[in-house]
C-alpha cells in the first residue's frame, strides 16, 4: 500500500515536470524539478483525483498549509496520512 502511494505520487509529479519517474527522487524539491505555482496546484488536483482525498492547501501561504510540500518524500508522507485518515 505505502509503496503504491509513493509510486503514484511520483508518477503524477513526473508527468507535471515532464520527466521520467526514475528522474524524480524522494529528496527532490518541486523547485528542483521545475514545477512552478500553477504546476503545483495542478499536481495537487491530480493527487486529490487519484486518491479520492481533499488536500488542505492554500496557494497564498504554502509554507503554513497543513500539507507539507517541501520535498517529494514530504508530499508522499502527507498523502499517505490523508489516505490513512480516509480509510479509518
Amino acid at each position: 500500500m505505502a509503496r503504491s502511494v509513493q509510486e503514484k505520487v511520483i508518477a503524477i509529479i513526473a508527468e507535471q515536470a515532464v520527466l521520467e519517474p526514475s528522474d524524480v527522487t524522494m529528496t527532490s524539491t518541486l523547485e528542483d524539478l521545475g514545477i512552478d505555482s500553477l504546476g503545483l496546484v495542478e499536481s495537487i488536483f491530480a493527487i486529490e483525483e487519484a486518491f479520492d482525498i481533499s488536500v488542505p492547501f492554500n496557494a497564498n501561504d504554502p509554507g503554513s498549509s497543513a500539507f507539507d510540500i517541501s520535498s517529494v518524500a514530504a508530499i508522499v508522507a502527507a498523502v499517505e496520512g490523508l489516505v490513512a485518515a480516509r480509510a479509518a
Partner: peptide, 20 residues
Amino acid sequence: EGLRVMSKDACRPFSLNRNG
C-alpha cells in the same frame, strides 16, 4: 476554488496573515 487562492475566512489585503 480550483485555483486555491480563495480565503475561507476574510479578505485582509496587505496584512501579513492574508490568505486569499
